[in-house]
């Protein structure tokens, strides 16, 4: 039984989104989470560009030798997808830079371990950690991080 073409396209777009979302939720390693985000974005972009497709149509470029009766596909979604791809690139690059800094500061990229460390760090910063040091907080940075914690970081 032949599979209709549109089913294939839609399955591709939705499959990418599903794989991406499952991967983001199930992965522990933050870099994998980021890769899965890229996959899901690709799926979204694919669905968007599919919204401009027309059967028996050609690319929307006027060349002067277009046969009579042949139409062109919708150029608008193509422009939109171009925009959204570039947005994705910018965000991913920023995320990778953050990953590099996080790996250097915490020594790991494991999501669960990092979440626990983040809670500790924030409690410390907000002055409600269980082992609050007795230093008097002052001025604009009320709670300087204790020096001891920075040293246990792996290079």
């Amino acid at each position: 039984m032949p599979i209709p073409l549109d089913t294939l396209f839609f399955a591709g777009a939705l499959g990418l989104v599903a794989i991406g979302v499952v991967g983001m939720l199930a992965s522990r390693h933050l870099f994998r989470v980021l890769l899965c985000l890229g996959l899901a974005e690709a799926g979204g972009n694919l669905l968007l560009v599919l919204s401009g497709y027309r059967w028996d149509s050609v690319a929307p470029i006027l060349t002067g030798d277009l046969p009579v009766g042949v139409s062109m596909v919708d150029p608008v979604p193509q422009a939109l997808v171009l925009t959204s791809i570039v947005i994705g690139v910018g965000m991913e690059a920023l995320a990778v830079a953050l990953l590099i800094r996080i790996r250097r500061a915490y020594g790991t990229l494991d999501g669960h371990a990092l979440l626990a460390r983040l809670r500790e760090d924030l409690d410390e910063r907000l002055g409600v950690a269980p082992d609050r040091s007795e230093d008097l907080p002052k001025g604009h940075a009320p709670f300087p991080a204790p020096a001891a914690k920075e040293q246990e970081v792996n290079p």
Partner: peptide, 11 residues
């Protein structure tokens, strides 16, 4: 901590 919180926000 700001870097990590931002990454989680970004994702």
């Amino acid at each position: 901590a700001a870097h990590l919180a931002t990454l989680r926000y970004l994702v």
